[in-house]
Nucleic acid binder design. Structure first.
Length: 384
RNA sequence: GGAGGGGUUCCCGAGUGGUCAAAGGGAGCAGACUGUAAAUCUGCCGGCGAAGCCUACGGAGGUUCAAAUCCUCCCCCCUCCA
């Protein structure tokens, strides 16, 4: 029996609740076996079955509705079979809300010299111990089914930027064959499966690819191959070109994005889902997002700053600690610095998404976006 | 009192005639980070806008074309002996 017969996945659904009157922005609700997700949504990244430095209770408390985890990493360690034996990833990591698992396509890309791609799939060496492995579309599905995520992603080849047309075209064709194989290999029909658009910066390839993905039929559609070092204009162009081609009634996911301004801009074009390591990684590296721009907490100007990190923020960190203390913790290399910084950055992103949803609901998204973007440009010019 | 070891740029510390404004750490300062090989990585780090010049290797002299490096005296620190 082909998977097509029972798409959409049982227990999975997307409801379009409202469309902003002045833009393509949309308010929606995704239903999964582990609960609902209000969109537009930002998914904190928990690569190895944990949003680094935070307990699941904390992540949920910050407003995260879903987290992303990773096929490649969990396959290598501790192994998907172990996680299956332990009752699946939700139980293993004690997270009862939805989980999206990335396919490992991005790791195939970012591992660089450690891997080799063929029509069959990706042969690679573990970044942990150098051992040899192979993941093709079928293995990718098997792993994600063992993990038991709510949303699985197709294995794809994420090409670098820049990439010439011929390569992008050839790679796209393979990614589409892989997408079909993923769909055919799927056995657990309570897990949703998303297709991933590739094709680099080439509009004709993107269009062709998306049409084929739709023909195969997925529960949602992702734009991949962005946030790989391309100029922002390219990313925005790809987003603007692709979103109108995607089915109105299915969730749209812009993978790996990103900076707050990129999110705001992409929602404008009709994107529903985002994920990015930026809030968590930058928190660990001392870069914090605030309502008045970025704060590099180690900078000397915060040495004696008794103000909260962001007076407009309601997070635990901002309610209890001064910038001076956060700077002290960070410079002293204290673990608490990472925890407090991560709490704040995640909360910043969650609040941003909340404001985005409210603006769409109120049909004021264009105003919201214009104000947000002009604040960003003011801040950027102040920094240069 | 005697014997030995040592004093290097903010700190630790390498350097024992030119390639030395002086290795390497640390501290300090700044930047980057976009489906996480990341609590990581990069740059700067004596002064003067650069070529170059000036100030620097405990202090003062000296040898030499050239001294952080060799010689003399002095000051200070550490270890051992009396």
């Amino acid at each position: 029996m082909s998977r097509e017969d029972i798409t959409p996945a049982a227990g999975f659904g997307f409801t379009l609740l409202h469309r902003d009157q002045g833009s393509e922005a949309r308010l929606g609700r995704i239903t999964t076996p582990h609960g609902v997700i209000d969109t537009p949504v930002f998914m904190p990244v928990g690569t190895q079955g944990t949003v680094k430095s935070l307990t699941p209770e904390r992540v949920a408390g910050l407003g995260a509705q879903i987290v992303l985890s990773n096929t490649y990493h969990l396959y290598l360690r501790p192994g998907h079979e172990l996680i299956r034996q332990m009752g699946g990833l939700h139980r293993f990591m004690n997270w009862d809300r939805p989980i999206l698992t990335d396919s490992g396509g991005f790791q195939i890309y970012s591992l660089g010299k450690l891997r080799k791609i063929t029509e069959e799939g990706a042969s690679f060496r573990s970044h942990i111990d150098g051992s040899r492995h192979f993941i093709g579309p079928e293995q990718c599905m098997e792993i994600q089914e063992a993990l038991g995520s709510d949303i699985m992603m197709c294995l794809d080849e994420c090409i670098p930027y820049p990439a010439d047309f011929a390569y992008a075209e050839k790679s796209l064709a393979m990614t589409l064959r892989w997408a079909k194989r993923c769909k055919d290999a799927g056995k657990n029909h309570s897990q949703a499966l998303f297709g991933i658009s590739q094709g680099g910066e080439y509009g004709t390839l993107r269009k062709r690819g998306i049409e084929e993905l739709i023909a195969i039929g997925f529960d949602g559609y992702a734009l991949g191959g962005v946030s790989v070092g391309e100029p922002k204009e390219i990313m925005r162009e790809v987003t603007a070109t692709c979103t109108p081609l995607l089915p109105m009634e299915k969730p749209r996911y812009l993978m790996g994005v990103g900076m707050p301004e990129d999110i705001v801009e992409s929602v404008y074009h009709g994107i529903d889902m985002f994920d990015c390591v930026i809030p968590t990684r930058n928190a660990r590296n001392g870069m914090l997002f605030t309502s008045t721009g970025k704060v590099v907490i180690r900078n000397a100007c915060y040495r004696g700053d008794s103000a909260p990190l962001d007076s407009a923020c309601d997070c635990y960190t901002c309610r209890h600690y001064s910038r001076a203390y956060l700077r002290h913790l960070f410079i002293a290399g204290e673990i608490l610095a990472i925890v407090l910084n991560t709490i704040h950055n995640i909360r910043y992103f969650m609040s941003l998404m909340q404001r985005i949803r409210e603006a769409i609901q109120n049909d004021t998204y264009t105003v919201f976006r214009d104000e947000f973007m002009s604040a960003v440009s003011v801040e950027e010019s102040a920094n240069h």
